[in-house]
Design a protein around this nucleic acid. Sequence first.
DNA 1: GGAGGTCGTTCCACTCAGCGGTACGCTCTT
DNA 2: AAGAGCGTACCGCTGAGTGGAACGACCTCC
Lengths: 255, 255
Amino acid sequence: MSSDVDTVLGKAIAVLRAFSADDHELSLSALVERTGLPKTSVHRIAGDLVHHRLLDRTSHGYRLSGGLFELGMRASLERGLAELSMPFLQDLYERTHEIVHLGLREGHEVVYVAKITGRRQARSPSRAGGRMPLYCTAIGKVLLAWSDEEVRRAVLTRPMPPLTAHTITAPGRVARQLDTALSAGVAFEREESALGIQCVAAPVLDLDNKLVAAISVTGPVGRFRPEQHADAVRAAAHGLGALVARRTSLRPDPS
Amino acid sequence: MSSDVDTVLGKAIAVLRAFSADDHELSLSALVERTGLPKTSVHRIAGDLVHHRLLDRTSHGYRLSGGLFELGMRASLERGLAELSMPFLQDLYERTHEIVHLGLREGHEVVYVAKITGRRQARSPSRAGGRMPLYCTAIGKVLLAWSDEEVRRAVLTRPMPPLTAHTITAPGRVARQLDTALSAGVAFEREESALGIQCVAAPVLDLDNKLVAAISVTGPVGRFRPEQHADAVRAAAHGLGALVARRTSLRPDPS
DNA sequence: GGAGGTCGTTCCACTCAGCGGTACGCTCTT
DNA sequence: AAGAGCGTACCGCTGAGTGGAACGACCTCC
């Protein structure tokens, strides 16, 4: 998609974005490879970024720095939700003792805004600040189900690459699940995004029943039965929804 | 301090940094005022930043966007600690039901890497991604006490502006508290950074007893007695320390 | 209602920041 | 010792970035 790498700024951002979630540290040449930019340019730009405290030098190359974290957290606070939702997520965690997520829709993906984890828990691929497809996660299905018809259609007609053997790729089946979710008030996911985990999610709606975000509980296939926690998730989502509604608007969502 | 505003990159970053923690939204002219840059430049750069998804346009101006949040979270993950510590902070929260913080030292300040809040709790000025002085917070005192002599001296000899009427500004008294903290294994703070709240903090040490971070519990003056939670904080910090030690190194800290 | 203020936007000619090919020096590996 | 791979330094060209000036769309406030 978007990547205009013809301006300094574009290049700098490309360099920053080259660091994916699990590449803690990249060498100059690795950056060159990932960005496709000429070595000299990367060298200069990375140097500038270090100077501006968005990157750190390490013995083996470069690493995203704390300055970036700082900016990022501000961005998160701006959206307000993260801060407001904390108590509800916290409550939900204590009730269930399973992984709790808060996610927004951004384009055709979920963006996880907050994640609460405890000890000895299911391993979920999600991360705060990370993204996932809409069609194969509980939060995603909720976000999709309560979105405009337009969004739903766009996602369902595009190819939906499976993430596991259980990922539902038939548009019809997904659509049926969305309808069920709409009437039930919750959506489920059973090993569709990662093996060994299941989820329940519920929508956070404002006073006009307009979708704001979604909350989910995730647990391992064995002991965890998503249905058992449907009520808790719904309750948390309602609570947060009421609080959000009381505050003024929270961005009209562009994409 | 640092602000080279003569390159595109510098200007762009200056624009981003113009958004402080509580300025959710800034108009073009506000940005001009804060950055001191010519109006045209800000206009162009802000436009570029929007195009690159680091800023959002709003009806009233600009706002830090989700793209930045995403990058910031990656930067946080890189430091690894945030992820590793979650279960311990979570545990600690459940034991105490008070605000829990994880903080690092960066230069002469605390940087809060994680914060757990529940319902109806003390109002603390801290924020994930935010900064505070070292000399008047429990976490700060811990970080200072276990740091090199050099750092301690630098902080204590510099002026220490009081944040409240209770802030301890006499270098001697702070030094004595640091020594007490070293032998007790925990540090306290009593309304020194904000009125109405008190804290206990303990150091996260690796196998070589080298300081990695600090954990604290914060509560309101009334019901909350920091001493009661000293053991819990110490335990959490020890647990995390052991885990950190098992993993390989976590950055050698430049500043 | 019109005079003055503020704010966002567009235009445009200048110039220096950014560019990237080339080349160098270092440290491993073979 | 030759080679591969890496980070760094040099340097002349050029168009991206620059910022002053001017415009139009709102606002109050006399």
